[in-house]
Nucleic acid binder design. Structure first.
Lengths: 201, 201, 201, 201
DNA sequence: TATGAATGAGGGTTCATTCAT
DNA sequence: CATGAATGAACCCTCATTCAT
């Protein structure tokens, strides 16, 4: 029945939200399943009807949060009137860095737990518009701008890893510099990376 | 007494070596202090005379292992006859990637636990020659080649983060490509990064 | 309705068969009702419409399996042309030992759970021919051979306990001897037991 | 130190005694390790310094109790002036049956958990006098009486299994008869068994 | 009748830490 | 300094049983 399915979705959400807030506040290591379920106001045993263990919840959360972040960036990009491919990429990166800077807690959570496997999976299963995934969308962006990127996935991988790892240190610990300075150095490098991956014909 | 000091060093080494091998084999989470001390053939209580907890040992280990890796690269570089600054950096990166590729277990351990704070600390306290630290040594390299790098620490930070995060995914999971392909794309980008940081005068 | 009754029988059989196979494979302690019902492809709640708990199923099974084993022995005996009472008893014992030896799993299950109460109940409710129970049948055997046994039940009890307990150790663990050697010692003793119980008049 | 060893012995005894009393009162299945340790007035974790799990305690207990019972029988036998081998065996059996009849709780515990493996191990490691085990003692009994038993272990095995299994049913449930009647039938059979095993030369 | 999601008590087990020796 | 027996809080996870559908 629709009613039962709906109820199950509600329960899963309660668990996930409770877990997120506890992971953020006390760290994953110091969050027990009992804690999660108490905060979710559900019985301890119920946890195991939805997840295998707390790391299963963590992966689910990282996927979900990373996807949301990226999706928001794309929505904003569509609202803008940027036409150049390079500028679009920088726009997305800039948007995400600002978001993470405003939500350091989310950054801490994502960057400690994001791996390329999870990220790629997120991108592929993320729906930008109906039936269109994020990876396709980026490809489309390149085509629209008449850019020919040799290996879009690889470009993405590198940019993502560079952002993820530098943002972690810079935003959370202002090490070795602060965010504006990072951006100033980072964006030219990203532009260079894009050119590096452009089809040379 | 020298004898007593020596004895204490031996015990600390036993603990550290035992811990490293167990962290590698079973992960930090699944290694208990009892395990470490049994393998080290010392009493459980003795652990607390040397370390606060197992995360204390982990940090000590990451620092030590990362420093060793970098130091070895520099030793090899000195043996070579490379003169250009760019080539020297690529040589170091290449050496380290190959070492990590040959010792995936070490990579797994380092890259999961390495943060810029620990890395910088390692570099600064690492002695290349007597009384000379690694950071100074790199600065010296740049000067020798008549390169003027605006912000050497920042350049280092970026390169280190890019290598660390991409190597993790590529070497351990061959994702999204294999190591030779990563190198092919990575080195031009690093060269570009260096140029990006060159003093434009 | 016949249809409904039939359906219920089918469900009960499914539960019982599933339970038997799981009890055998993992032991009773490590078989949960959830396991039983998953294998039976029925809902967990349905279990309680047929049995009180898993020990209820176990007793049902032991009764059923022990009765089957004994019944088969009697069927074979009827096919044979043995005339002497002693020989008939030995035939039955021999048949059962061989069957148990060929089906160690069944032996394990039966002998760990068989008590005289359950066994006697099995024998009494077992139908050899229509409306004739096994105990009556044995009594008849004795009469046919002009034997007068003082206390047939007691004789039976002793033989059954001796077989059950020695077979368990010998067949499953070859302790303290192997089956052929056990038989060699056991059969004369059984013959003696029979004589011991013969009416001395 | 002797002090520490002594203390450990005391702790083990406390666990074992607590476990025995709880196994008897509530059954093994319904006795938890927490229960055992609470009654023993020790911390739960301490249990695992002495035993693997509760079945480990059970085996230890069965061995110990069966050995004690047998040892007592032999002590009494020595006090008596019985000379014939047959009479000696019957004396031992009779003594043990009476003891078990007076201590039904012990009977319940032993007979549900005694296997030939455990029993044989008990007999072999049990010291009757200094450095002399029970198996040797019985062998000596036979020799003293100029009896030649072909296979003493096998004889023992059969007698033990027969007593153990019949006593269980008869003493605990008076099924199918009461103890005196069982004895009346059992002893001639045991005598027969002994003769069955006598060297025929 | 039949279902299976939900419950929550309760079990086993681990382990960092202490402290008497 | 070094030991390792003892602790007991804390955790994970299972599972018989219920009950709304």
């Amino acid at each position: 029945m629709g009613k039962i399915e709906e109820n199950k979705k509600k329960k899963k959400d309660a668990i996930v939200n409770s877990a997120f807030s506890l992971f953020i506040d006390h760290g994953i290591k110091d969050t027990s399943i009992a804690d999660i379920m108490k905060k979710a106001e559900l019985a301890k045993g119920t946890f195991y009807l939805y997840f295998k263990d707390k790391y299963d919840v963590r992966d689910y959360l990282v996927r979900k949060k990373a996807a949301q972040l990226f999706e928001n960036a794309i929505v904003k990009l569509k609202d803008s009137e940027i036409t150049e491919f390079d500028d679009k990429i920088i726009f997305i990166v800039d948007y995400m860095l600002d978001e993470l800077n405003n939500n350091k807690i989310l950054l801490k959570f994502i960057s400690k737990n994001l791996s390329w496997g999870i990220l790629r999976n997120s991108i592929e299963n993320m729906s930008v518009n109906d039936g269109e995934n994020a990876a396709d969308y980026i490809e489309q962006l390149a085509e629209e701008s008449d850019k020919h990127i040799r290996n879009l996935e690889m470009l993405f991988f590198m940019i993502a890893e560079l952002i993820n790892s530098t943002a972690h240190s810079v935003i959370l610990y202002q090490q070795p510099v602060e965010l504006p300075e990072l951006k100033k150095e980072l964006y030219p490098i990203i532009i260079n990376m894009i050119h590096s991956f452009e089809e040379t014909n």
